Simulated assay, not measured.
Amino acid sequence: MSSGETKTVSLRTQIGEGLRHVFGSRHRRALAISAVVVNFGTSVISTMLPVVFVREFGLSSAALGLFWATGGAALLLGARSARPMAHWIGYGRTIGTAGLFLTPGSLLVPLIDRWPWLFLAGTGWFLFMFKMGMDNVLGVTLRQHMTPDSLRGRMNATFSFLLTGALASGAAVSGLLGELISVQVALWVGGIIASTAFLPVFLSPVRTLRELPGISARRKTPKPVS
């Protein structure tokens, strides 16, 4: 066997280990599926937004930029609020239960039109992106704590592949829907898919996690008597 073949087998083994680690646990599998769904839905929506603003409704590029900036601000605020919320109601509950109230905001985005519908769609976009910002912090924190050091690189590589693939495929699906059916259908498909992103975590054991894995166990471990 040549050295090149050895490297290929080694890489395949590492990829397999990363996939088994992510999908072999109900906790990590739920986090992965939820992240893939939210990235896919968000990509479907975002791909169509310039078409909706500029071509469909003749809105200015400044209006589109303001809409996207609203989402960016919501991401930042959600990320900033993630830890305080997790300490208050629990890490798993924040990701899972809060999704009941915030993630369905994506269903307001397809209602986008001129004022006042633009404001309503922007509000839904803000709520959805706020939840996404919280998940970006808490989801990464949880999966890092659920992974030993020896597998952390492979776990992160697996997540990166899945999430990047979801963005690319979401953009492709959005373009096909917009071309073959209509822009509004593409927005509704993206909004509906994104609104379900909390369900994999909500229906998994992740929702019951109040603290980071390992912390409560360490607190209960008696200290050795000196």
Results as ranks from 00 to 15, higher is better:
residue 2 S to D: 13
residue 5 E to N: 07
residue 5 E to G: 09
residue 5 E to C: 05
residue 8 T to L: 15
residue 10 S to K: 14
residue 10 S to W: 15
residue 10 S to P: 05
residue 11 L to Q: 10
residue 11 L to T: 10
residue 13 T to L: 11
residue 13 T to P: 04
residue 14 Q to H: 13
residue 14 Q to R: 15
residue 16 G to E: 07
residue 18 G to T: 01
residue 21 H to C: 05
residue 24 G to W: 11
residue 30 A to W: 07
residue 32 A to S: 08
residue 32 A to C: 05
residue 36 V to R: 11
residue 40 F to D: 02
residue 41 G to F: 06
residue 42 T to R: 00
residue 44 V to M: 08
residue 44 V to F: 03
residue 44 V to I: 08
residue 46 S to N: 12
residue 57 F to Q: 01
residue 59 L to W: 12
residue 59 L to R: 10
residue 60 S to M: 00
residue 61 S to T: 15
residue 63 A to R: 04
residue 65 G to L: 00
residue 68 W to C: 03
residue 68 W to T: 15
residue 70 T to L: 14
residue 71 G to Y: 01
residue 72 G to N: 12
residue 73 A to E: 07
residue 76 L to M: 13
residue 76 L to C: 06
residue 84 P to A: 06
residue 92 G to R: 03
residue 93 R to G: 09
residue 94 T to F: 02
residue 95 I to Q: 08
residue 97 T to R: 13
residue 102 L to K: 02
residue 103 T to F: 11
residue 105 G to A: 04
residue 106 S to E: 06
residue 108 L to R: 00
residue 108 L to K: 02
residue 110 P to W: 10
residue 111 L to A: 10
residue 113 D to W: 14
residue 120 L to E: 08
residue 124 G to A: 03
residue 125 W to G: 01
residue 125 W to H: 13
residue 127 L to M: 13
residue 133 G to Y: 00
residue 136 N to A: 14
residue 143 R to C: 01
residue 144 Q to Y: 10
residue 145 H to C: 03
residue 150 S to Y: 15
residue 151 L to G: 08
residue 152 R to N: 10
residue 156 N to T: 12
residue 161 F to W: 13
residue 165 G to H: 09
residue 166 A to E: 08
residue 167 L to I: 07
residue 168 A to M: 15
residue 171 A to F: 07
residue 172 A to W: 11
residue 173 V to N: 06
residue 177 L to P: 01
residue 179 E to C: 00
residue 181 I to H: 05
residue 181 I to E: 09
residue 182 S to K: 10
residue 187 L to S: 06
residue 190 G to T: 00
residue 193 I to F: 14
residue 195 S to R: 06
residue 198 F to L: 04
residue 199 L to D: 02
residue 202 F to Q: 01
residue 204 S to Q: 06
residue 205 P to T: 00
residue 207 R to Y: 08
residue 208 T to L: 07
residue 209 L to H: 05
residue 209 L to G: 09
residue 212 L to Y: 13
residue 212 L to T: 14
residue 213 P to E: 07
residue 213 P to Y: 01
residue 214 G to T: 06
residue 215 I to L: 11
residue 224 P to R: 13
residue 226 S to W: 11
